[in-house]
Design a binder for these strands. Structure first.
Lengths: 189, 189
DNA sequence: TAGCTATGTTCATTATATTGAACTATTTTC
DNA sequence: GAAAATAGTTCAATATAATGAACATAGCTA
């Protein structure tokens, strides 16, 4: 988004889809009819509180009215197994393969982790609000995050906040593979 | 969210994480230092344009500053393999297992797909902007989305927009397993 | 046609978001 | 220690978001 969002047409579209009149939406939202008209024609820069009221009156989420410049470009990105590079192979015996291209999406990263027997992947706290979603593809691992610890086996899934110290460990004597999705609550620079 | 978002503390947190002063952020964003101070202490109801400028100055997305009540406190969700139910097992020979709890996050869903030999999973177009991220865990599949088609093998990864007709097919004579992440561009109702 | 109702738009006023400058508080430097 | 610099907070002035009422522009009804 290069310019401030022009949410006028967006709001108008939502209102049209619900067959609501300005008067009705005004009553439901608590925003004056005049204001609604001006906002829809992008004559004013509404307050977030006002837009929130409108979203409430429309029964949608605030985000829905603001995501105007959301990327409409279609994607078809293939990352072949043989072409994907190992990000790092640290001395802990853990191989990290980046599945998602760097700038594919700005708040989502997908990895495939290969754990050798008795290997551990410790992690520093990520950005606040960051979450990780793990799926055990092969073997079993022990996940620790903020005092909580559990052991996962093949096919198990776990979601946890990782803005605190956390680690993934393969305590067994056979290799393990884990699919990992990292979700940032905020866009990376 | 029951009340209009109080984005003050949120902005302050982002600024603190970057070690930015009010003056610096003021220069970067074009919003006066006084305004920034008042916004951070929730003394005013800023304009969306103003918040957008701040987001720009912080290098984050507008959504990131507004998702105040969106924080899901859950920190450690485990979904055991034996306890997770199969969402549907259609006659096409495809088993869909939901890995992510329904309301874990509002714009992310994670599945594990099991394809029997010669099975296909066709899909209707999802919401506009929806994307899918596939990782082939076992076997190989053929992915089609909006005219594009490619064949993926074990360890391959693909990202594509799925707000159009798309399908995943196992054309081989051996079973296949695919890890799927669905990302919605807008919050679901 | 005229009248009537319902739509969305503009007008004048009020409320308040936004600003630059002055102010206070805290840290740094000598 | 005081002076200087840098942090964030309030202040008075201005720009503008937000409002209710008047206005316009249709579509109906008879």
């Amino acid at each position: 988004m290069e310019n401030p969002p022009m949410i006028g047409k967006n709001i108008q579209k939502f209102r049209a889809n619900r067959n609501l009149t300005l008067n009705v939406l005004s009553e439901r939202s608590g925003v004056s009819k005049a204001m609604l008209s001006q906002i829809e024609s992008d004559k004013v820069n509404p307050t977030v509180a006002t837009v929130w009221k409108i979203a409430r009156g429309l029964g949608v989420d605030l985000q829905d009215l603001l995501n105007v410049g959301a990327a409409p470009k279609r994607k078809f990105i293939v990352n072949r197994s043989e072409s994907s590079v190992a990000l790092e192979t640290d001395d802990h015996g853990v191989n990290i393969k980046v599945l998602s291209p760097i700038d594919m999406v700005d708040d989502l990263e997908i990895y495939l982790l290969s754990f050798e027997p008795k290997s551990t992947l410790p992690s520093e706290p990520h950005y606040p609000g960051t979450e990780e979603y793990l799926t055990v593809v092969k073997g079993s691992v022990k996940v620790t995050a903020g005092g909580n610890t559990t052991e996962l086996h093949k096919g198990d899934f776990i979601a946890y906040h990782c803005d605190i110290e956390h680690s993934i460990a393969n305590v067994s004597s056979s290799p393990a593979i884990v699919h990992m999705v990292v979700r940032f609550s905020q866009v990376k620079k």
